[in-house]
Design a protein around this nucleic acid. Structure first.
Length: 742
DNA sequence: TTGGTTACTTAGAAGGCTCCCG
DNA sequence: CGGGAGCCTTCTAAGTAACCAA
């Protein structure tokens, strides 16, 4: 078997030392500056899709999302200045928000704390707020009714239905009332994350249950009773036998090596070849268990559910500054075989069971310190209120730290999220200056500066990730902007009728391929040629640059600015722009949603958020098409019947017939609506085949843009955000007015 | 300047759950 | 009323970036 068939070419050692003289006054300093024209980059592969037309409202829809996304964004960039309330006039508008707020009695410090942009600040008078709140409540109630009906089974009596509904509404109200409106509170001084933190500690996975006697592992045809530890590891492997992982050499080798470490001496002597191992019975047992689980009775399922609920109640929450907050991941990761993404050199290694002795607890000194499981003790208990984690441990495969932290709907996460978007919005006010500067820097005498300028150009224009350096052999070979190598780009003087085209092809985070052909300015192009001179495939494209240098530079341009802010900024900008472009308040609800999804999709394309096409995709698409066809037939029939009925009504003037005509009309109308909805759905789904919308929605798009859009378009928010998302974005939902601009 | 450590965000896969349709 | 499609949650890997010490 081809061991490591994909061994990556030798990577240059990552020291970007000063090898070459940094001075390059020679050569091409005479490059002309040419305005970057509106580039229409398109992603090669995915192309044709998205143009699939069916009745779509606006004529501009003829192009792919990619094209739309990209040049919309560029147009936006061009006109960015219009939006800028104050360019470089400094004096950031911290507007000491005396407008509202529970007195600033205790806020001597925090100079840059407590930000409120003008939009937020205005309309925050108590009165306004109250009004808004009650509005929200009303809406909620209405929604509730809608959601309620289908849920309640028909068996129930009317009263029961009523009661259930009332209960649900009440619960909702209570929830709303209990919600911690932290965004209305004063922020803590720098670095302090909490004043009081109490929790029960992490939840440990159940102990390993040894195999029953009738399930045997065989080596070389003979049954072997394994020691507990070895048996557990064997089961991990057996459970994965259906997975492609277990066919990979690296995975198998790593597993075998680590498995042998778990074995007793005798076992190790005996078991020397993975290929002679027969996990068949273990595998079968596992499958049986899965099957049995699936076929469990309703009652049994309920019992399990309730047990889980109980665990959640006990371990899933903590008290943070007098508020009960949900913990995101309160369970310790169970032991397993490591599943790295892509060609990970460590795939298959044994991720060991975590003991309380490995776990550091973080909580308030004056809280009830969590009890370790009986007979155990914690590695350490500390009281550090400058961090947000409740517990941590070091994982053995990569040696990295794992944390237990709060849920996304918590104050700690929400506040950070809000802050992130505020930084991105701040970038808006100085992005023009920064762009002008890097254009200028393309001409710099210093190689390092030029490289920085080109990298920044990519990060800004293509929303590439920063690209930190990685230790070789520890992870899959993936890159970001600063770590691009010569092999990852191809320069084309002309390509498909465009000049100066850069073709990118590399694996990014999670080994997701980034493929894109982008026309760039002549100057950038020439610089790239220069950077690539005398280099080989495996050499760094930006050998004088790393993320630390880049970020240092960025933070000097604007406090808080780092490479990743550009991604947030450009993503949110694109969404706002696309929504404006694509949606009309006169559209019907389905069309509005399609527009929103398209805008969202434009961002996902920009950020290269992909997913494996669902396994059932082709099938379900065919099903949908079939349904559309049959619906069309139905519609034709309905129309025919309507005609017929009209004819008859005319002839006989029997009033009953008129009623029939009305009925038929309704049927036609209904049919048409359903057909439209299906067609829209089909388009949406097709365009979405391998694009993941959720990542951008959750991490890059300022929720206030979406909330404002919903208000303007009169789209119920729950069409856009599900419950979890509404929870996470509660701060934005509460504070956003329809006139919000990112 | 580097190299390790730490803390926190961002990412897609997998599996469970719900709801809808025939 | 059973099965399956798709939405939602959970899981944990894989990034970014700051910090610290030598």
């Amino acid at each position: 078997m081809p061991q490591e068939d994909k061994v990556k070419k030798v990577k240059v050692k990552k020291t970007k030392a000063a090898v070459l003289s940094d001075d390059l006054s020679s050569g091409d300093t005479h490059l002309e500056f040419k305005k970057v024209k509106a580039e229409t980059s398109e992603k090669a592969q995915q192309k044709q899709k998205g143009t699939k037309q069916h009745k779509v409202k606006s004529p501009k829809k003829e192009r792919t999302d990619f094209e739309i996304a990209d040049d919309k964004r560029l147009k936006q960039e061009a006109s960015d200045g219009d939006f800028m309330p104050e360019k470089k006039g400094k004096k950031r508008k911290r507007k000491l928000e005396s407008v509202e707020g529970p007195s600033s009695s205790s806020a001597p410090s925090l100079p840059k704390k407590k930000k409120k942009s003008p939009q937020e600040a205005e309309g925050c008078s108590g009165l306004e707020k109250k009004k808004r709140k009650s509005e929200a409540k009303n809406k909620k109630v209405k929604k509730e009714e809608k959601e309620e009906r289908p849920v309640t089974a028909k068996k129930k009596t009317k009263e029961e239905i009523e009661a259930a509904r009332a209960l649900k509404i009440k619960k909702k109200e209570e929830e709303e009332q209990q919600r911690w409106r932290w965004w209305e509170e004063e922020k803590y001084e720098d670095g302090v994350k909490w004043r009081f933190l109490e929790h029960k500690g992490p939840y440990f996975p159940p102990e390993y249950q040894p195999l029953p006697d009738n399930v045997k592992f065989y080596y070389d045809g003979k049954p072997v009773k394994l020691s507990l530890a070895a048996e557990e590891a064997a089961l991990f492997f057996a459970q994965m036998l259906d997975h492609e992982y277990t066919t990979k050499d690296v995975f198998r080798d790593n597993f075998f090596k680590d498995w042998r470490k778990e074995m007793t001496l005798e076992e190790r002597m005996l078991i020397t070849d993975l290929n002679k191992c027969d996990f068949g019975e273990l595998h079968a047992m596992h499958k049986e268990k899965v099957e049995a689980r699936k076929n469990m009775s309703k009652e049994d399922k309920l019992v399990i559910k309730q047990a889980n609920q109980k665990i959640l109640e006990e371990y899933g929450y903590c008290m943070l500054d007098h508020h009960r907050e949900r913990i995101g991941n309160f369970k310790i990761e169970p032991p397993a075989l490591f599943r790295g993404r892509g060609e990970h050199p460590k795939q298959g290694m044994l991720k060991k069971r975590i003991q309380p002795e490995d776990v550091i607890i973080n909580c308030s000194r004056d809280s009830r310190i969590p009890e370790p499981p009986a007979g155990h003790s914690w590695k350490e208990v500390r009281h550090d209120n400058t961090v947000t984690w409740l517990a941590s441990w070091t994982e053995n495969v990569q040696g990295s730290c794992k944390y237990i932290m709060l849920n996304a709907n918590s104050k700690l996460k929400g506040e950070k999220d809000w802050e992130k978007y505020e930084v991105a919005r701040k970038l808006k006010t100085c992005v023009n200056a920064i762009r002008a500067q890097y254009q200028e820097d393309l001409k710099s005498k210093h190689m390092g500066t030029r490289q920085r300028a080109v990298a920044l150009y990519f990060i800004d224009k293509l929303a590439l990730r920063a690209g930190n350096e990685k230790e070789e052999g520890e992870t899959a070979d993936t890159v970001g902007c600063c770590s691009l190598r010569v092999e990852h780009i191809t320069l084309h003087d002309t390509l498909d009728g465009e000049k100066c085209v850069v073709e990118f092809d590399f694996l990014g985070k999670d080994c997701i391929r980034y493929y894109n052909k982008v026309p760039v300015s002549k100057r950038v192009f020439k610089n790239l040629k220069l950077f690539m001179q005398n280099k080989q495939d495996g050499d760094d494209l930006f050998d004088r640059l790393n993320t630390a240098m880049l970020n240092k530079h960025l933070s000097s341009l604007m406090p808080g600015l780092t490479a990743k802010v550009f991604r947030t900024y450009n993503a949110s900008m694109t969404l706002q722009q696309q929504l404006k472009e694509l949606s009309n308040s006169s559209d019907n609800p389905a069309e509005k949603l399609l527009s929103y999804n398209r805008a969202n999709r434009a961002v996902a394309v920009l950020c290269n958020h992909q997913r494996a096409p669902p396994k059932t995709f082709e099938q379900s698409m065919a099903n949908l098409q079939a349904k559309i066809v049959s619906r069309k037939e139905q519609l034709a029939l309905a129309k025919k019947e309507l005609k017929q009925a009209k004819k008859e009504a005319k002839r006989s003037s029997d009033s009953k017939l008129l009623v029939v005509v009305e009925k038929k009309k309704k049927a036609v109308q209904r049919s048409e609506e359903q057909l439209l909805r299906m067609e829209v759905q089909a388009t949406d789904r097709e365009e979405n085949k391998q694009i993941a919308l959720s990542t951008s929605k959750l991490n890059y798009l300022d929720p206030r843009i979406s909330v404002a859009w919903c208000k303007n378009m009169e789209v119920p928010l729950d069409k856009i955000y599900n419950k979890t998302q509404r929870d996470k974005f509660a701060w934005a939902i509460d504070m956003t007015e329809r006139n919000f601009l990112f």
